[in-house]
Amino acid sequence: MSLVELKNLTKTFGGLLAVNDVSFNVEEGSIVGLIGPNGAGKTTVFNLITGNYIPDTGEAVFNGKNVVGMQTHRIVNLGIARTFQTIRLFKSLNALENVLSGCHCRMKSGVFASMFRTRKQRAEEKHVLEKAMAELEFVGLKDQWDIQADSLSYGKQRLLEIARALATEPKFIILDEPAGGMNDQETQELIDIIKAIRDRGITVLLIEHDMSLVMKICEHLVVLEYGAVIAEGDPETIKNDPRVIEAYLGADDDLL
């Protein structure tokens, strides 16, 4: 069954057609890659799914529900989490608090419960602390829990964003260039983490320029160029698709 169905999404910015009639499905429990040259509209597609942008036309159906027009935090509540291409951590806060932000939408205690520190509130705080530490451990940042986010290395900041996204208890996670700025060893660890995410039953959609990573972990690829889908299929088919090769011409063919 498809967890996510994008139907004829179109988005223009002024005269620029950023996303042109994009449709594809993401099967539950799969790892899907969205690839394409720079400026092809990949991140815009992500922003349309997460509610950061509203499409001019089209639908983004998640779990049988059209999320177009919903506010981002509601979409997160439904179970879609994301990371950002340009890392957007809470820089002045430590790693643990960054992950706790993800727990927020699964918590209930309000202003009065906090002021009077009710038993329920204390139990909830204790519970999310456990959850947040578990997510930090999952991405291998447990020992750095009290490091301020912007003091972490680039690669670790990316992992922290993933931990924060996982803390929202998503069914579907969108990773925007998760390996950007990572060295080979970090990328290898990332591959294991993405597989582990899938093994937790979370469907993954990712944008990535590191083709070795994409080819290793994605079961299905969608190729975007000038805002439109030009090819779709398993990595082997995509590798040999003449239109894809043409789109990437100018880049090293060996990459594909």
Partner: peptide, 9 residues
């Protein structure tokens, strides 16, 4: 933006 994206209204 990150706060909204982490599910905070």
């Amino acid at each position: 933006v990150a706060a909204e994206g982490s599910g905070i209204d």
